[in-house]
């Protein structure tokens, strides 16, 4: 088997007394869309944030294309990586947040070109040219000069996707990318993500959009109370008979486009 894009080995995470991830093992295959679903508080966002080292796993290791992320392992002991080592491994990842997290004092173009200039060292002109190409890709070239406060939520999220894509990541992580959007704006973001999936981008998506998980996802992981209950193709996961916990969870989505699964 070829090397997975992300491999999660025995990862646990505790916040104080609470164990939010319990010994997670997961391999994210390359070129596929893996969806993390589960009820609120199940740990799916925490797991995704661990994959970007925005949260530090309390135990276990995460590797990005074979490179350890955040911690290096030596003689069975974990050692915290230096900031430079972390940045190098993290450069393979693009991250998209629920709250967009655009920088409000920069235009859309400024947000997308920032890291090209400051991290990649491109000239302003070259950086803006490449940034503009990304904005074209998400259909927002006409909004390049707008500040985030002048854009709709859906447009802001598309700018955030362009910002992540500008650095040519091989893996894109999405943390509930449409949860802060009203249904009308959700579609435009999902369309961009669908196009990205069609290009063969490796994607990990934490989502409440069960329809998206079922139709675009190649793998579905169901988390509950910090445990990865199962991990399979959407056909297998959603086919009856289902796991009782998943059945209960899906019942809450009957009014949100999951009827197709019935």
């Amino acid at each position: 088997m070829t090397q997975p894009a992300i491999s999660v080995r025995n990862v646990s995470k505790r916040f104080g007394e609470t164990l939010v991830l319990k010994d997670i093992n997961l391999e994210v295959p390359r070129g596929q869309v893996s969806c993390l679903i589960g009820p609120s508080g199940s740990g799916k966002s925490t797991l995704l944030r661990c994959m970007a080292f925005l949260e530090e796993a309390s135990a276990g290791m995460i590797e990005i294309e074979g490179e350890p992320l955040g911690f290096s392992e030596k003689d069975g002991k974990r050692r915290r990586q230096t900031a430079a080592e972390l940045r190098r491994t993290r450069s393979k990842i693009g991250m998209v947040f629920q709250q967009f997290n655009l920088w409000p004092h920069m235009t859309a173009l400024g947000n997308v070109s920032m890291a090209l200039r400051r991290v990649r060292g491109l000239s302003r002109k070259d950086a803006e040219e490449r940034a503009m190409a990304q904005l074209v890709k998400v259909g927002l070239e006409a909004r390049a000069g707008h500040y985030p406060s002048q854009l709709s939520g859906g447009q802001q999220q598309r700018v955030a996707i362009a910002r992540a894509l500008a650095l040519d990541p091989t893996i894109m992580l999405f943390d509930e990318p449409t949860s802060a959007l009203d249904p009308e704006l959700t579609g435009e973001v999902l369309n961009v993500m669908r196009a990205l999936a069609d290009e063969g981008m490796t994607m990990v998506v934490v989502t409440h959009e069960i329809g998206f998980a079922a139709s675009v996802g190649n793998n579905v992981c169901f988390l509950d109370h910090g445990q990865l209950l199962f991990h399979d193709t959407p056909e297998a996961v959603f086919a009856a008979p289902r796991h009782p916990r998943l059945e209960q969870f899906l019942d809450t989505y009957l009014d949100r486009g999951a009827q197709m699964l019935r």
């Binding site: 925005l54 450069s91 693009g94 991250m95 947040f97 997290n101 920088w103």
Partner: peptide, 11 residues
């Protein structure tokens, strides 16, 4: 989150 976004693009 604004600093996390900066971390993620390598600043």
């Amino acid at each position: 989150g604004h600093s996390e976004a900066a971390d993620c693009v390598g600043l």
